[in-house]
């Protein structure tokens, strides 16, 4: 059974590592980010931070999907 779960556990573990890295990046770099001269509105600054964070998470989802799909198709083709 462990052989069956192995790949899913690896995917979950890698995702967890990436998520922790993303949380660290967002909380330590993006959230305290201050734009020199400042943007006209606090809301706009917040919106920009949310947009960058959203972009990072979307990129993560895209790469994750691509990797799993590639692995799955290759394995199926081998069989």
């Amino acid at each position: 059974m462990l052989n069956r779960v192995k790949i899913v556990l690896i995917i979950i573990f890698l995702n967890w590592l990436v998520l922790i890295f993303l949380f660290y990046t967002v909380s330590s770099i993006i959230v305290p980010l201050e734009i020199r001269n400042g943007l006209p509105d606090v809301f706009l600054t917040g919106l920009l931070k949310v947009f960058i964070s959203g972009l990072l998470f979307t990129l993560w989802l895209y790469i994750w999907n691509l990797c799993v799909k590639t692995y799955f198709v290759r394995k199926c083709l081998k069989q």
Binding site: M1, N3, R4, V5, I7, V8, I11, V68, F72, K75, C76
Partner: peptide, 18 residues
């Protein structure tokens, strides 16, 4: 379930455990 079954067929109980 597809990822669990990639190494071959299994019964439902094994899949639930996975």
């Amino acid at each position: 379930a597809s990822l669990f079954l990639i190494n071959g067929p299994a019964d439902e109980r094994t899949l639930i455990k996975c």
